[in-house]
Design a protein around this nucleic acid. Sequence first.
DNA 1: TTGTGTTTTATTGCCTCC
DNA 2: GGAGGCAATAAAACACAA
Length: 339
Amino acid sequence: MESGRLIFNAPGSGAGQMLFLDCGAAGGPGGGGLFHRGGRPMLGLEEGRGVKRPFFTSPDELLEEEYYDEQLPEKKRRLTPEQVHLLERSFEEENKLEPERKTELARKLGLQPRQVAVWFQNRRARWKTKQLERDFDRLKASFDALRADHDVLLQDNHRLRSQVVSLTEKLQEKEATEGGASAATDAAALLPAVDDVKASLADEVEEPTEPAEDAAAFEVQQVKSEDRLSTGSGGSAVVDADALLYGAGGRFAKAVDSSVESYFPGGEDHHYHDCGMGPVNHGAGGGIQSDDDGAGSDEGCSYYAEEEAAAAAAFFAGHTHHHADNDEDAGQISWWMWN
DNA sequence: TTGTGTTTTATTGCCTCC
DNA sequence: GGAGGCAATAAAACACAA
């Protein structure tokens, strides 16, 4: 960390040979390498626009360049396509940089090892951003599908409940108007129909699970997700949403592709192909409340899962800006474009 | 040409690991 | 405690529309 140093190119000293001069903070927080002398920029801004110059040219080119005044500091320049090409290839092989590889790359590219390290650092950040976008897209698609399924099930539930009410009323009417043995016989004839509807309602909305177990399982998943995030070792922030989705879906949750890729390509331990998350049906009642739960209304479709679906929706709403801000790979300089 | 938005290079500060 | 990683950020370089 070259804190408080200005970076100068040493004329004639070869590519990437820079002088690090101790002269106080350069540019404030984040620095950015602003070079000032006597209160004015030393970068020759009037020369900057429209002139494409690589940050480091070849040693020969550098020697030839009269551009470099002996005292002028190096401008921040972009790497050449060839340099980026090699760095990209190296990054594809392994996104982390061991000291030996860093030194070797720096030597090959005529860069400072520090520059190679910085390039990898920034490249990892870009990769992570893209990965988040991909995770977001995938989870949003799963969420939308889940939401649609959920709506259909709500409608079915509503329809079946109406049927139960209707049939029950008919039964009661019969009992009231007729009475006696014949009424009892008719009621007995209607009962199977009511039972059928009730049975299909139960099939639709209930899953025999232990609420306590489910709640515990969900908590464990949350803890695991947080662990991944806090370590920053390849976990994706999206796993929180993942957990939400499973929770939101309860038994209806679609299996969101659990092979959410790691941020970091290469390296088996950097992947979590199977995040180990399964459908979670948690909370008291473990999902859909029955009439016996006391809710007793169509809002009894007030699933816990529905609340979580709302939470997931909020999550996505909150992340929409992130998605919208980025045109997929737009502007991402890809080395193959130059070749 | 100029204003504006995006990308790239680089720094700083904090955190984790050995 | 030092090395290395990451997030946040600055600023140059670049792209592009008006």
